[in-house]
């Protein structure tokens, strides 16, 4: 198994932290993983990106030319990166912010209204969680339970009060992915 995941969004959207959570969850699930914060030197203008390689064998190169999956959080990132996904790859987009669905022939698309979900849950800081939930379920690399367990381990005790909201957002994303399967 080798999964090359590329994530991009605006600075401040928590792209890197979301990527670190996925990577940490992969480690906790007994997989090899690398988290790599630079995509290419032309990435500028507020975009924040990271590449996560998850493998049951050697990771080898921590970079990716044609990611198997992408999580794109804003319209600039969608325009810029969606075309680079591998054939048959999984594209998860935050449809709250990406009005124009990116063209990606041969890819599987999951549209997650992540901001609306976060608003319904009543915790706007859970935006990334529904996207991660959709990605995890869509790829089958991790379960949302894996992600929740690692999030709990990463969060300082005083933030554990936010776990139910985060778990709810993960589940909402997972449901959307399942409904498309």
């Amino acid at each position: 198994m080798r999964e090359e995941l590329f994530m991009a969004g605006l600075g401040g959207q928590g792209v890197n932290l979301a990527g670190q959570l996925i990577a940490r969850a992969a480690m906790d699930a007994g997989l090899n993983v690398s988290w790599f914060p630079i995509y290419s030197p032309e990435v500028r203008g507020g975009s924040s990106t990271c590449t996560i390689v998850i493998a049951d064998g050697r990771v080898g190169s921590p970079t990716s030319e044609r990611p198997n999956s992408m999580v794109l959080m804003d319209s600039t990132s969608a325009e810029r990166f969606a075309g680079e996904i591998a054939d048959g790859g999984l594209l998860v987009i935050n449809s709250s912010l990406i009005r124009e669905v990116p063209r990606c022939e041969g890819c599987r698309l999951i549209e997650v209204p992540a901001n609306e979900i976060a608003a319904e849950i009543g915790n706007e800081r859970t935006v990334n969680m529904s996207l991660i939930g959709a990605w995890a379920t869509g790829t089958g690399v991790l379960t949302v339970e894996d992600v929740a367990r690692s999030l709990r381990a990463m969060l300082p005790e005083r933030h554990h009060v936010h776990m139910p909201a985060n778990e709810a957002a993960l589940q909402r994303g997972a449901e959307i992915a399942r409904s498309l399967a």
């Binding site: 990577a23 090899n32 690398s34 988290w35 790599f36 914060p37 630079i38 990771v59 921590p62």
Partner: peptide, 9 residues
């Protein structure tokens, strides 16, 4: 610079 900033187990 990459080894410095990348994260791994």
């Amino acid at each position: 610079a990459i080894l410095a900033s990348m994260m791994e187990p």
